[in-house]
Design a protein around this nucleic acid. Structure first.
Lengths: 349, 349
DNA sequence: CAGGAAATTGAAAGCGCTTTGAAAATCGGG
DNA sequence: CCCGATTTTCAAAGCGCTTTCAATTTCCTG
């Protein structure tokens, strides 16, 4: 059933039917009712493509998800981010289009999106420290919002990010104040911007507490359970092992915990751990009292906010760039405690 | 740059340019070259909506992902499934459209997809035992492929599933043959078809080994690490605890392992575990020798196959239903061993 | 070199919708 | 009851592409 057929059924012109359905004021209430009833009865929905062609709007948002070519890995945070964004799109009648791409064809994909006009805007995921996408994006003529930030200047485009630097400085400082002097960082891939900022925050806090960074305590990997486990074992095998760990994801934190248990260490007593926590639906952090002390920053909420931001930008393309910096919440759980005795934290100061 | 402009630049008709770009034979090689060069130079891509309107094809596939309204949970297997499907779509020039929906608006969403014609076919996720979607899907006129099967008759529609029943029968049998008599099942939500079939396979194998099922050993939950942990602790607290466990997901298996460690049980010696393993990129099962004995069935591969199947159906809509039943591979790892002595397995038979 | 066949190009209609500009119907006031 | 103002409706153009059918050009053969 298309518009022509529907209007024939009603004995009205396409114009009137279209207007009635789209809420234009110049159609009488009586006919509007009739039209609405007929549309419902015949299960009429305007053809997306035709509508898009006529209005110049696709009513769709593109998400470009880089698939790390190294390990062909799909980050589970996308699932939650997209769930959040999807809520907003649904509410505003937008569809969500997903493109997965390796680094190779990335440029072509963005140009395609720009030229094919199948979406009204895009959300850019997983910005890297060195990333040539910014120029590209500014070149193709499509509104976009970045989840995170690119390395380099952070103005001139729309982004939504959490304050990775401050969060990790905060957590590191918290551990230092508990008397820990050897604090390890189990980070994500530091070619990713978020991981680089976390490292910077970590280093900044070490510096503020007069602790000198030790490269042996800083590792950077894809954030899997397995990597968290491996990294922790290696760290514990060090001649002078850390007494506290900082990890970039709940998933690696699971591996950290496993390694610690395996070595007979009790978390919060023998060793302390703070994890970043994206609040993924499949990895809730304990119940009332969280298992892990964590930096909480629900990625699903990021999805919602980024989507709202993009829709705003689409409605007003010439607005000055919007940015939103979210603070993570330091949530004290069971996995942190004062540095164990051998370090004699009481002696200091 | 659109087709009209491009053809004006070239001094050719739109017809010829369109034909040249789409590889029709009735255009001379010379002009084809010229057209291709100009298109490249001006970065021309046909407008998706216009092309779709003219051809009647959206060149897009819809994925409808139910969001479990109970806990607002997005299953991480979707990420990998979609990565697999996305590969195939990209290769064939299709886009991927995602819709997330709670059970409430499900029916309306499918009807929308059918009527709006914004996709050429859909992949249906997470079929339930009781599921009214089959009628709905047959009603709206769109090709579809189900990942999994609905409860009830399994013919008359296209699906791709793993042999859940046989896999779990196999694993249960394997444990029974190791002498285990108290085998617990930590299943996913048994309102889901896959989980119901797994339970059936488990029961079938128990029966074949003359073991009577014990409701206290069968639990059914959302498959999170936390639930796996909780369930295992509860099972171990039973007056007569299980000596072997079967779990429906690597993620819950992580929780199972944690609970076991916490109770000082060594996996493969004091207690055995077989996990289903979707081979998710963030939860690889150990290295050369897998940590867990597991039923391996890579969901990313399912995604690829389901996508290929759907494209085939779209090309030939009147074909008889295609179905594909994949067998999981039982992969022996370190988490299984003979039942511990107290049960005296040697006595039997 | 004529003439028909084959190869190549083009004009125009159509896909299903929105929207402009014009026409028809209705209304209110003298 | 008539006329201008206001509502309400409609015909037709246009969005950017494909495709049918017709026109033109090129080629080959006798």
């Amino acid at each position: 059933m298309n518009l022509r057929e529907l209007s024939q059924v009603l004995g009205l012109s396409q114009t009137t039917v279209s207007r009635a359905l789209n809420g234009y004021p110049e159609v009488s209430e009586a006919t509007r009712q009739k039209v609405a009833a007929a549309a419902r009865k015949h299960n009429y929905r305007p053809n997306t493509r035709a509508k898009g062609l006529a209005t110049g709007r696709a009513m769709a948002i593109g998400h470009v998800i880089p698939v790390s070519s190294q390990h062909e890995v799909v980050n589970p945070v996308f699932a939650d981010f997209i769930a959040g964004a999807g809520e907003i799109y649904a509410r505003h009648g937008y569809d969500m289009m997903l493109s997965l791409t390796g680094n190779r064809e990335e440029a072509r994909l963005y140009r395609d999106l720009g030229a094919k006009r199948s979406v009204d805007g895009i959300i850019v995921h997983a910005p890297r420290v060195e990333d040539d996408r910014l120029d590209l994006l500014q070149d193709i003529n499509l509104p976009f919002v970045v989840h995170g930030r690119f390395g380099g200047p952070t103005d001139g485009y729309n982004w939504l990010d959490m304050n990775n630097r401050r969060a990790f400085a905060r957590a590191t400082g918290f551990l230092a104040e508990l008397g820990h002097r050897r604090i390890a960082l189990i980070n994500g891939l530091e070619s990713m911007d978020f991981a680089a900022r976390r490292r910077d925050g970590y280093l900044e806090a070490l510096n503020n507490h007069a602790l000198s960074p030790d490269p042996a305590l800083m590792v950077s990997h894809e954030m899997t359970e397995f990597n968290g486990y491996d990294a922790t074992l290696a760290l514990l095998d060090l001649p002078c092992p850390p007494t506290a760990l900082l990890t970039s994801s709940m998933i690696s934190a699971l591996g950290v915990r496993r390694a610690c248990h395996e070595r007979g260490l009790v978390m919060g007593r023998d060793i302390s751990l703070i994890s970043h926590d994206d609040d993924l639906s499949y990895f809730r952090n304990g119940g009332r009292v969280p298992d892990f002390t964590s930096l909480r920053s629900p990625v699903r909420d990021h999805g919602r906010r980024a989507a709202e931001m993009l829709l705003r930008v689409i409605d007003d393309p010439d607005s000055t760039p919007i940015t939103e910096l979210l603070e993570a919440e330091l949530q004290i759980g069971l996995s942190t405690g004062p540095a164990p005795a051998p370090l004699r934290p009481a002696r200091q100061g």
